[in-house]
Design a binder for these strands. Structure first.
Lengths: 224, 224
DNA sequence: AATTACAAGAATACTAGTAAACTAAAGGAA
DNA sequence: TTCCTTTAGTTTACTAGTATTCTTGTAATT
């Protein structure tokens, strides 16, 4: 398993959760993998409880399945669950940009603007990691500016389903497209044009449509 | 604290979670109450771990706040959080009934029909508890028929915010109105009329608009 | 040969004890 | 008096051990 450094003041539980999520997304803990509290705990240098608590949290989002007295497994890809995760995201983000059209302040807009400027910088000076980070931050900023942070966390808890399929995807999306999408969203919010904003965010989120059949042919064991 | 019987095969954690939620909703554990793992555990006749795990889950939805090495409190009513919970519910349920208009089968419709018939029975033979149960079941059935159960659970985790304010509410909603709302939703779905369905579900959910000021005057200590 | 019974092993659920951190009150010094 | 220090007590975070349940393999029996 891929273990990164534990942050200062990060609790053992948060560290376990972060590590598990990361390894599930990069497929180091592949769909269908058997995991046990004991094994994971010793790999991470923790005791069983914080690992157990992390597994419980992941199991609430159906990312792992815990079978009492039998063991725990990383859930196989359930394509329906991937689509449900996307459904939740599209529905909520459409409502969020709609609200943003109503109540965005100058400061909010310039925060988004600044983010996009940085994205353009990392297109010129390529850094896919930074761009991914800025993408996530852009969306979080949208939720923050309409004061719906809890909504973001709820949605985010389902995104692992999506992220790990994305990392199996055979063709990647051109970063420049993503930046253009973000610009379109910002533009619509500036114009207070709700339909335009909803359309732009929907277009953006549907870029991540996954070629299910190709991936399933490539990784048949990972699917339910 | 109000302790109900532990179900057969119910885990200690589920029992703790159910008991805590119930006591928070009926305000037996009032907003602002200090709770500790130890105290709750002995009241429920459990050890600290299952109680702790239940508290962790509630804290993810901001229903309790855990301060390491200091203590835990039942969150005071944060009106913004109540509105965010409602926001999530309205947005998601509107999307759900829209889907239902597209894909409801005969069996799905007759399930809803049957539920409404029962509601009418319990109007004639009054039972508020049964009616509340049927109301909840009606909404769950909507999510089930469009295969978005995980979405329901996500939304449901936030509903405690709403439910406990409802139990502080000074004027109750006439049960007959709720049944009429459900009929309107079903009718719209039958007609495959999305706008009508969205309007009906929005009307239904906005009945639970809470008279913030009245309640806040009645229970000032319960508010943040 | 097939099936049942049993034992060994492994895994989570739960219990319990320790560690670390924070609070608050008491007491001493300026 | 006021402020700082210290100490006792309480709380959650984490560690560790026990209980229970399920699986699996083996041996005995039919």
């Amino acid at each position: 398993m891929h273990i990164t450094e534990r942050f200062a003041k990060e609790t053992a539980r948060d560290f376990a959760l972060r590590t598990l999520k990361h390894n599930i997304i990069i497929l180091e803990l592949a769909p269908g993998s058997l995991v046990s509290e004991n094994e994971l705990a010793s790999e991470m240098g923790l005791s069983r409880t914080p690992v157990r608590e992390a597994l419980i949290e992941l199991s609430r989002a159906q990312i792992v399945e815990v079978y009492p007295q039998k063991g725990s497994v990383v859930s196989k890809i359930d394509y329906h669950m991937v689509e449900e995760a996307r459904f939740i995201r599209v529905v909520l983000e459409k409502a969020i940009v709609e609200l943003a059209c109503e109540c965005a302040l100058e400061d909010d807009l310039s925060l988004l603007e600044k983010n996009i400027k940085l994205q353009e910088f990392y297109i010129q000076n390529p850094s896919p990691d930074k761009l991914l980070e800025l993408d996530n931050e852009f969306h979080l900023d949208l939720f923050k500016m309409v004061h719906k942070i809890q909504t973001y966390y709820l949605m985010d808890s389902m995104m692992v389903h999506f992220d790990r399929v994305r990392s199996m995807s055979l063709h990647t999306i051109k970063d420049i497209k993503i930046v253009e999408d973000h610009k379109a969203v910002l533009e619509a919010i500036k114009n207070k044009n709700k339909d335009q904003a909803k359309q732009a965010i929907t277009k953006h989120l549907s870029r991540y449509i996954i070629d299910k059949d190709e991936i399933q042919k490539e990784y048949p064991d990972y699917f339910k």
